[in-house]
């Protein structure tokens, strides 16, 4: 009985915080837009008895999903989000791996400090940090002032409100999510493995590619998903740092919801996004499990 209770806790958690909201959003996505509060129909009226419930279900349809396919804005936004998430993930990996590697190689007494420095940005609100980037990247911002001062440029660079600013923002924000899992796999790695590889005739470089990289594979995969998954639906960074040409599904969702007040279409967009994300989430879970098996 206690065992059952223990297992039930996470499932109840999942039910309350994931499944119920999902079903609500799903229901809205199948409704029609209406000038009302809330702005959709039909509404489930349980006082009306069985007839009310059946007529409610009859009123639901997939119109909104069909609408998403009719307007190419949506699939372009999905595609563009996908591209931005992918490029950001690769950039974060290229920057994060060397950082994680040097952290893992640092003297053991330094490692907690370095780890702290990686986590430190989380102590400030994410929004404030994104606003800070606006201050840095704008035409009169710190970066341009600095570059003008060094004489490298004579005209201020336009970075803010471009895709470049979006990439900078995303990579900056999600870098710790890349560094931490990679660091944790690298730190666990036994140095004598590299010695053994060298002993068997590897150079330092080939030992890195043949031993270190494969052994940090689970960390790399975990880091990539942890960056890719939230970036795909990212809304704040593209709307604050991006320009009008920055097309991301998170932004579209926001506009449908708040500007157009079209809750059903916004919900449909969200459902599709979720379905797209299920694949990488499952792959991520697989990876985690594999790593646990390797260690067990």
């Amino acid at each position: 009985m206690r065992r059952f209770a223990l297992i039930a806790v996470p499932y109840l958690w999942l039910l309350a915080l994931f499944l119920v909201p999902f079903l609500i959003v799903m229901k809205i996505s199948l409704s029609d837009i209406a000038l009302a509060i809330p702005p959709y129909t039909p509404k489930l009226d349980l006082t009306g008895g069985w007839d009310a419930v059946t007529s409610f279900f009859k009123a639901l349809d997939f119109e909104n999903f069909e609408f998403l396919t009719s307007d190419d804005l949506y699939w372009k936004a999905y595609l563009s989000s996908f591209k931005i998430a992918l490029i950001s993930t690769v950039l974060a990996l290229l920057i994060g791996y060397p950082i994680a590697y040097s952290m893992a190689r640092a003297a053991p007494e330094w490692r907690p400090t370095l780890l702290m420095l990686v986590i430190l940005p989380f102590w400030t609100s994410f929004l404030i940090r994104v606003y800070a980037w606006m201050g840095i990247l704008s035409n009169e911002g710190l970066l341009n002032q600095f570059l003008l001062w060094t004489g490298l440029i004579s005209e201020p660079l336009t970075i803010l409100n471009t895709n470049t600013a979006v990439y900078i923002g995303i990579v900056y924000t999600y870098l710790p999510f890349m560094i931490l899992p990679i660091y944790s796999t690298l730190e666990k790695m036994d140095d004598s493995l590299l010695e053994a590889a060298e002993d068997l005739g590897c150079s330092r470089t080939s030992a890195f590619w043949l031993i270190t990289v494969p052994l940090s594979k689970t960390g790399i995969i975990a880091g990539c998903f942890l960056v890719f998954i939230p970036t795909l639906g990212e809304f704040v960074i593209p709307s604050l740092l991006g320009g009008s040409q920055t097309l991301m599904i998170g932004k579209v969702l926001w506009e449908e919801f708040f500007n157009n007040r079209d809750w059903p279409v916004a919900s449909a967009v969200a459902i599709i996004l979720l379905l797209i994300l299920i694949i990488p989430i499952i792959l991520f879970q697989r990876n985690e499990q594999k790593q646990r098996e390797m260690e067990g």
């Binding site: 053994a196 590889a197 060298e198 002993d199 068997l200 494969p214 052994l215």
Partner: peptide, 19 residues
């Protein structure tokens, strides 16, 4: 360096490549 020596070592901790 170790990779330039005609010496092989069996490590006390075995140091097998887990992957």
């Amino acid at each position: 360096p170790p990779n330039k020596r005609a010496v092989n070592m069996m490590f006390q901790s075995y140091a097998l490549f887990p992957h």
